[in-house]
Design a protein around this nucleic acid. Sequence first.
DNA 1: CTGAAAGCGCTTACAG
DNA 2: CTGAAAGCGCTTACAG
Lengths: 326, 326
Amino acid sequence: MAKPTIKDIAAQSGVSIATVSRVLANKSGSYSEKTAAKILKIAKALGYRKNSAAVDLVKKGADVIALIINATPTNFSTQIIDGIQQRASELGQGVIILYAGNRDHALQHQAIITALGRSVSGILLAAIEPDEEDLTLLKESQIPFCFVSLYLGTAAILAVSSDNRDLAYQATQYLIDQGHTRIGLVGIDEYHTGSQRRIGYQEAMTANHLASATVLPGDYSYEAGVRLLQAVKDQGLTAVLAASDMVAAGILTAAQQHKIRVPADLSIMSIDGTIICQITTPALTSVTQDFYQIGRQSVNKVMGQPALDFVPVKIVERASVVPPAD
Amino acid sequence: MAKPTIKDIAAQSGVSIATVSRVLANKSGSYSEKTAAKILKIAKALGYRKNSAAVDLVKKGADVIALIINATPTNFSTQIIDGIQQRASELGQGVIILYAGNRDHALQHQAIITALGRSVSGILLAAIEPDEEDLTLLKESQIPFCFVSLYLGTAAILAVSSDNRDLAYQATQYLIDQGHTRIGLVGIDEYHTGSQRRIGYQEAMTANHLASATVLPGDYSYEAGVRLLQAVKDQGLTAVLAASDMVAAGILTAAQQHKIRVPADLSIMSIDGTIICQITTPALTSVTQDFYQIGRQSVNKVMGQPALDFVPVKIVERASVVPPAD
DNA sequence: CTGAAAGCGCTTACAG
DNA sequence: CTGAAAGCGCTTACAG
């Protein structure tokens, strides 16, 4: 009752394991239809399943892309995964997902090591901020890797994301076009993505001769949004650009508790554009990222195919932004 | 520049590959500290990484649990994954996640085959409705498997979930205790989870001599909630038990568009209790499931450890349920 | 404490 | 079209 191997199939069908292997690996042209049929039938009857470990060992690598992902407080991951899975499957690659916890550096490092040990054909890191050690490990591995939804600021490291600088510029300009001048950027982190967005925000403010930039740092979470509402209020802002849909939702909830009307007293524009934007009342106007496409392009990139570095965003008007009360 | 192997380490350190293997596998007591130190140093210098395929092959199996998960329209997966990862790591198991798309049967089947081919130590299926073929495959595999957040109605198949019958009973009773009599169960599927909840709902209605049960089927999605609001209205319900937080959010949004006040005109109680409940206005009263614990227990179960079949739920009162206007 | 040797389940030149 | 044989990178009795 042990797991059947090609040896068992060979014995039952009276051919060598080499022939069984050829048939099972679909090396067409290298076997007769007749033997193939016999072998396939026996394999099926035995409930044969190819041992991936053996295949990977002899082939020196698996046709698998490893996706390392962490539980961000935001919720866009499904779309990214969909895009990755689809494109990978078109390229004949499987996908295994390794979970890196919630920005847990030990787990993150462990996940990279696991991927390396499996000799995957590529490593995708979604919403992962690597430390120096991670980067060294990755670079020394000879396995192609690509950051997803994160741009490290250098063309030397593969990455696919929205153009966060442009994204923040566009969103800020949109708020300015609505007549706002006291605009804050809220819930943003201190790393790469965050700094790109700060720059874009800053540039838009400056281009419009608006001096008073207000940046309130946070971690993209709902809780950050809730917590930062007080500062938004203290600063007398009339509009905020929230670092994520969850931050926007947090600001919104807190505002309602403080009897601040959205959008009448405070306009909220959100970055991401996931379904969260439709769930809140009012619905959130957003700069929507194309996560599905980001996923697809990152597979192209890590597999050495032509790919976009930046995937375009678009502004989706809903109900949370209006001109300031003045 | 090829990937270094134990052979390279053995050559450089002047010992046999057997000794290198023992040191690298931590077979303590079977080597001297001195050789160990030397070997470890060389391994590090070489950037040596153990080849998992080789290890899995000789050990006939990997210390890895495969988690097969689909992109449900709901969003509780992070908590389940957290629970699984933590418990697995305590038991010395890695976790690889295989994505089964959005209730995509082909992908789902493929994921099972992939897990089987990797000789994992256990398979966890989260929010997966198996078809006959899947079940046969799993049963014949000799690999333990356990359904997560789904009870198949038979003790013969391992599963960890909330007691969906009891959950629906409790929630319905809660609404009845608030004075509601025209209560609907909305957005529920036709499979196992759905039928358990129907039964609990029905039992609570009957136990309270409430005849007019209204069940509106759906797929747990936000869109289902939006779509079903019309029926809720037509049926003249004063309260609904929504099959998921997303369904509840959908009903809520649609209600607001129809000028139906929540909770004044319509009370909404939600099943799941994820962060979505805090984001909406009003916040959603819910029967909250303990997804983290469900994850942990499912690992225990699939690893043959003592484990709960059903993880307790609790009712969390927020702002979406009040007594009916009468 | 260490080494020589067999073996895990496949694939793939090489010959025929 | 098929088979014998070597080999992928490890682990593990068995001897010493």
